[in-house]
Design a protein around this nucleic acid. Structure first.
Length: 406
RNA sequence: GCCGGGUUACUCAAGUGGCCAACGAGGGCUGACUGUAAAUCAGCUGACAUUAGUCUUCGGGAGUUCAAAUCUCUCACCCGGCA
């Protein structure tokens, strides 16, 4: 199958081109200049933000979720609507996640994935679990109506093929950091078998539908915080004909850069690497330095809906009283629609009045803030100033607050 | 004028002798949020101290009692019904 409209080109790297590089991913729906932040629109919408508004933030692509769209409205509806991009009126590139994240989020019930540690995490009661893993796939209990559904690699590929995103992810098992090493080994072996099946099924589906635009498939790396597992899975999946790779999200924050680097050292340099579910500035700097090209995360919109905003001086809650009569923009340095037209006092008012426009305006700002941050990292890689940019940026952002993880 | 009901912290609203500084909700304050079961969640919300504790509160005043938001008397105001 010719990869008609999919390619990845590294334009500039700081040094070793496995790490800190600027490039371009080309997809049937257009290019993505990397490093890039990819906003998440789980259910084929960036919550509270129209595609036009999202476009104005500089977003180059978005990521939706196979699990959610399968349940509602059904991937067949999206397909009949012309595919994800047309269905939701977003003409630019799209990604879909495989549903692998739900193995953890609906299964073990862990609230925290990234920063969790074994001492503070608790197993959810078995009765509340909604996902159950076996070697062949996962049974999900729908969070909408409790009905039982089964995902296998083949099912996930079928859904993602129907959704028609430009970049899809292999079906994986995201494990909790609280699981012991033995379980991580077992789950990783399962993820490997699922990776083979995902790739086989995806290529099979593409041969069956030769007129469909080429869809890229990224393999997903797990392995928790274990160097041997991370390197092993990078070597294993790196030998396969995936178009790119996703680094799975169960990472200890303090060691994020180190863990990512284990994988990027082993993976083929010339393929794009996506870090799943990460968007805190310090984490993004770490990951870009370690060779990550794209990121997705719900944080900018979720945090916005809950009343917090990113600024160059740190993230803070807009609902806080000092904003009540502050008629300055949210971030005077920001060129987004919200910051050029609205004051903190107005946003504070909307949030306290529980007006939905608050979610829209703050989401627009937060998305643009993170998108621009990553775009600026790209520029700094190209002109060679990445390290200085990183140091100065983080010093200001975390200046009077907590120190970023090293 | 008579009879009945009512007056609790910013608001609504539980509580009818001790377990009440007083349930709950809202509001307020603060924080969290990383492949979205999230327009969600957590803590605080009389004062001072904040480990312990001390002090002042349940329309006003006066009583009964070891002990009152809770019982009695009285005053004020509100809502019904009858004149």
């Amino acid at each position: 199958m010719p990869k008609l409209n999919f390619s990845f080109e590294i334009q500039q790297a700081l040094g070793d081109e496995r790490f800190a590089r600027a490039g371009v991913i080309t997809t049937p729906h257009g290019p993505i200049k990397t490093p890039a932040f990819i906003p998440v629109g789980t259910k084929a919408t960036i919550k509270a933000v129209t595609p036009e508004q999202l476009d104005a933030t500089g977003a180059q692509a978005l990521l939706a979720n196979a699990y959610h769209l399968y349940l509602q409205p059904g991937h067949n509806i999206v397909e009949r609507g012309g595919g994800l991009s047309k269905f939701m009126n977003w003409p630019k590139p799209t990604f879909t996640d495989s549903g692998g994240f739900q193995v953890l989020s609906l299964g073990s019930g862990y609230k925290k994935v990234l920063s969790m540690d074994a001492a503070t995490s608790m197993n959810a009661p078995v009765s509340s679990r909604r996902a159950f893993v076996d070697d062949n796939g996962v049974n999900f209990k729908s969070h909408l109506d409790g009905s039982i559904h089964r995902f296998t690699p083949e099912v996930s590929m079928g859904i993602q093929h129907a959704l028609g995103a430009d970049i899809c992810f292999a079906f994986d098992e995201l494990t909790s950091l609280a699981e012991p090493y033995d379980y991580q080994v077992e789950a990783l072996a399962r993820t490997h078998r699922w990776a083979i099946r995902s790739l086989d099924e995806f290529r099979h589906l593409q041969h069956q539908a030769p007129t469909k635009p080429y869809q890229a498939l990224f393999g997903v790396l797990q392995g928790a915080n274990f160097e041997d597992l991370r390197r092993q899975t990078a070597q294993f999946l790196g030998r396969m004909e995936f178009d790119g790779y996703g680094i799975g999200g169960a990472l200890e924050k303090a060691r994020l850069g180190e863990i990512v680097r284990w994988t990027t050292e082993e993976l083929p340099a010339g393929k794009p690497k996506h870090l799943l579910g990460i968007s805190e500035p310090d984490d993004i700097f770490e990951a870009v330095a370690a060779g990550i090209d794209t990121f997705d995360c719900v944080s900018p919109t979720r945090v916005a809906r809950n009343g917090a905003a990113y600024t160059l001086d740190g993230r803070y809650n807009l609902t806080a009283a000092p904003n009540r009569a502050n008629f300055a923009p949210l971030d005077p340095n920001c060129a987004c629609y919200t910051c050029t037209n609205y004051t903190r006092a107005y946003l504070h008012h909307l949030l306290h009045a529980k007006e939905r426009l608050a979610a829209t305006l703050v989401s627009i700002h937060n998305e643009q803030f993170i998108i621009k941050l990553v775009a600026d990292m790209r520029d700094s890689i190209i002109d060679g100033s990445f390290s200085e940019f990183r140091e100065h940026w983080l010093a200001r952002y975390y200046g009077s607050r907590r120190q970023p993880a090293v």
